[in-house]
Structures are given as structure tokens and as C-alpha cells.
Amino acid sequence: MSASRVLVLHLGLLAGLFALQFVLPAYHHGNLARIMVLAAYAVGYNILFGYTGLLSLGHALFFAAGMYGMALMIQHGGASPAPALLAGVLAGAVVSGLLALLALRTTGVAFMIVTLMFAQAGYLTILYFAEWTRGDEGFVIQQAQRVLWGIDLSQPTARYFAAWALFSLVFLISLWLVRRPFGRTLIAIRENEERVRMLGYDTFAHKLGAMVISGTISAGAGAAYGLLFGYAGASFASVQYSIFPLLWVLLGGAGTVLGPFVGTLFMFYLIDLSSGITSAYMLIAGVVLVLLTLFAPQGLVGELRKRIFRGLP
């Protein structure tokens, strides 16, 4: 696929998402705003899992670092949204850098376990400091505290636009990154790390970079989620929120730029629709997931790439 067609396809998605806000009914309009923020999280996860080949079970730690970095700054630091968002993103960068230094000494299953354990430790830390975090219950960020540059982010239109802007930013970063030499080296590490090392690359430094970029994007999504939807709670640091981005990316297509969004959208509506039909909606969702892994093991966009769009990044 030529570079210009790739660009048209990816920019087309962003243009489509922008235009949709004018036609969508309120319910789906709200959903899509939420999906775009969660998809931004999945984009971050995909950098490490899909492109670098490192399966983390601890990304909720980064998502929550962003969310709490932002929310605590507002709640207890009296900060306005812009510096609070920045604090959330920085918290994610620092936490992911520190965890990378420890976890990247391991590979494979050990890496999964180390990331899982540190994320659990993060979750417990949030519960432990309940005086500030309000633990499981969490806390609401008031409407008055959510006005960014004069824009009230609790309003649906502003919220949709903010979610779109965030998603567009990380989506374009991801598209740019994976076509840069750095991103191509990450892909090569996923394919054959020993060979990359013997070509003269410092693979540890590359994986460290990938994990910090991945963690920072995830934290940005977490911070935005808290700010746009006005709530921070410990459940966002739980293991469930580490599994979600893995599922979204697997469904949409690991190691594709479009996959995280497609997977998040698909899973969101799969659960939404099936819960409208039956209370056993997780059963329906489970069956569809099993069918997909059987018939589209590379994820939706991954299969598209295999069958139609060869060379899709």
C-alpha cells in the first residue's frame, strides 16, 4: 500500500469521527466520546504489545497513574485542568520508566507476572491511601473544576471534541512512530530480538523507550478519562483495566495502527448490544470473541491487512 493511500485511509478515519458528532444521536455520541478515550489507551498499549511484542498485564498502573496524577492535583492541589493533565502524563512517564527498568530484565511469562504484580501493588496503594483517594468509592471531579481554557468539558459537544483531539493526537503519533526507524526497530525486536542486537542496536534502550511511550500515552488516556467523565476510582487500577486494552488490541489487530480503535469500538458495542438482549450478555460477548480468535486470529484489521491491504502499517 502506497504511503499516500495509507495517509488517506488513516486521516479518513479521523475526519469521519469528527463529522460523526453532527449526525449521531445523543446516546451514541456519548458512547463514541468514551470509546475514543479508551481507544487512545489501546493505542498506547499497542505500542508495547503489538509493535514491540511485549505482553504487559499491568497497564492499568499507567492508566491509573495518569488518572490519579491528574485528579489528585485538582482535588488536593487545587490545580486547574491543564497543569493537572500534564501532571498525570508525567506521572505515567515516570511510573512506566521505573517499571520498565525492573520488568525489562525479564521476558515472556516472567514479564507478564512482574507487570501484573506491580500493577496490583499500585491498586493496593490507591486503596491504602484512601484518605486522599477515597479508595474503591473514588471521588467525583466537580463540573467547575473541569473547565479547560474556558471550555466546560462536562458538556457533550466539548467532551466529544476533546476526546477526538486526544485520540487524533495519539493515533497520529502512533502512525508516525511505527514508520520511523525507531518504530521499525521495535517491530524487528518483536520479530527477532537477538538478530536486532547483533545488528548493533541497544535493544534494552529501545524496549525502555517503547514502554515509556506506551505508558505515557496510556496515562494521557487515563488523565483525560478522569477529566472528561468527572470521576477517579480505584477500579480503573484493577487488573480488569489491564486486560481490557489487551482484548481491544487483539480483537482489532495487534501491530496495526487502526486496530486499537476498531477493537475498542467493536467490543464496546458488542457488550452494549448483547446486554440489551439478555442478562447473560457476557456469554454472547464470549462466544463472539471465541469465534473471532478462530476465524480472525490476527484481529479485524490484521485480517484486512493479510487479505487486502498488504503493507498497512
Binding site: 517491530i187 524487528a188 520479530e191 527477532n192 537477538e194 538478530r195 547483533m198
Partner: peptide
């Protein structure tokens, strides 16, 4: 260069 062929098979 490796004795056992070591390339990026998927690229």
C-alpha cells in the same frame, strides 16, 4: 551472521 539462519521472517 548466524550459523542457524536468523532473519526477520515476517518482514
Amino acid at each position: 551472521t548466524f550459523q542457524i539462519t536468523s532473519i526477520f521472517r515476517g518482514l
